[in-house]
Design a binder for these strands. Structure first.
Length: 287
DNA sequence: TGCCCCCTGCAG
DNA sequence: CTGCAGGGGGCA
């Protein structure tokens, strides 16, 4: 589900809600969603919330230094409810089930000493919460293999050029989707970035001109920044911490726009299956 | 480096 | 009713 901008939106929400809060109770409603001993988080306070790619990292501190790794995968949601903060009153319908919290897709519930509650919902149950020792966080295989943060200073044009050169025979689509190359892009932002760069998803990484590379680099970063500004892309299940939807999809050029006119040239957007994903292009603009 | 799979709900 | 959905691990 959520890609980098959605996860970053949730991270920023968590920073303003759960930092400093002490966990007084944990309910795990579906065992496979929580790895580790939930008892260990009782009495611990949230110290920091960071993000690596699409993975959230909540540092908590009680008797020991622990971290909660949270991956939302396709349909995961984090929802915050507070009786003292009107904007988080909760109880309102939450897509896709449109029933109040907790609901059928609620899998884990964190209750804080203040009475505030954090719900982890996941309709398709692909997501997970994993409790690990703080010192072992970066020994996790996912974090060992994940690529550069595309909005970090480390992701320079030069770095991007080098990365493309290292994998010259991949399609642009599978390259951008590969978390081991660049962390955080998923299907929506990949399709939008390729449109913005006027590059076709099936083009090979090794076939780009210097100006193509620059276009794709700029497009990748700008589409992610815009996604964060608009609080992410809500199609069905993604919502922000207070249950509201992101607005990125309101003016996408190609994603899920098949049959509609390209905003640049008017050619009808087409959709086909590629790299295992629905892929949307303007065949006129993207070469 | 591709393909299948983990799940459930909903559009077509 | 079948196919599809924004992710990524494991497999050949």
């Amino acid at each position: 589900m959520p890609e980098l901008p959605e996860v970053e939106t949730i991270r920023l929400g968590l920073l303003s809600t759960v930092i400093g809060q002490r966990i007084s109770r944990v309910d795990v409603l579906l065992g496979k969603m929580f790895t580790g001993d939930p008892e260990r988080v009782l009495g611990a306070s949230v110290r920091d919330v960071s993000r690596r790619g699409k993975l959230l990292i909540l540092d908590i501190e009680g008797d020991s230094f622990l971290s909660l790794l949270i991956h939302l995968k396709m349909t995961g949601q984090l929802l915050f409810k507070s009786l003292t903060r009107p904007e988080f009153a909760g109880g309102h319908p939450v897509p896709p089930l449109n029933t109040p919290l907790p609901n059928k897709s609620t899998k884990v519930i964190f209750t804080f000493e203040s009475g505030d509650i954090l719900y982890f919902n996941d309709l398709r149950t692909f997501g997970y919460i994993k409790l690990v020792e703080r010192e072992n966080v970066f020994k996790e295989r996912f974090l060992q293999t994940i690529g550069v943060e595309p909005l970090s200073d480390a992701f320079t044009l030069e770095y991007f050029k080098g990365l493309l050169k290292k994998y010259p025979k991949m399609s642009l689509k599978s390259f951008l989707l590969d978390q081991r190359k660049i962390a955080g892009l998923g299907n929506i932002y990949t399709d939008e970035a390729l449109f913005l760069a006027y590059l076709h998803p099936t083009r090979l990484t090794g076939s780009l001109s210097a100006s193509d590379v620059k276009s794709l680099y700029d497009a990748t970063r700008s589409v992610l920044q815009k996604g964060i500004q608009l609080h992410g892309a809500s199609k069905t299940s993604y919502v922000t911490l207070d249950g509201t939807q992101g607005t990125f999809l309101a003016d996408v050029a190609v994603y899920q726009q098949q049959g509609k006119p390209c905003p640049r040239c008017g050619t009808l957007i087409s959709k086909f299956s590629f790299a295992g994903r629905g892929t949307h292009v303007c065949v006129q603009c993207q070469k």
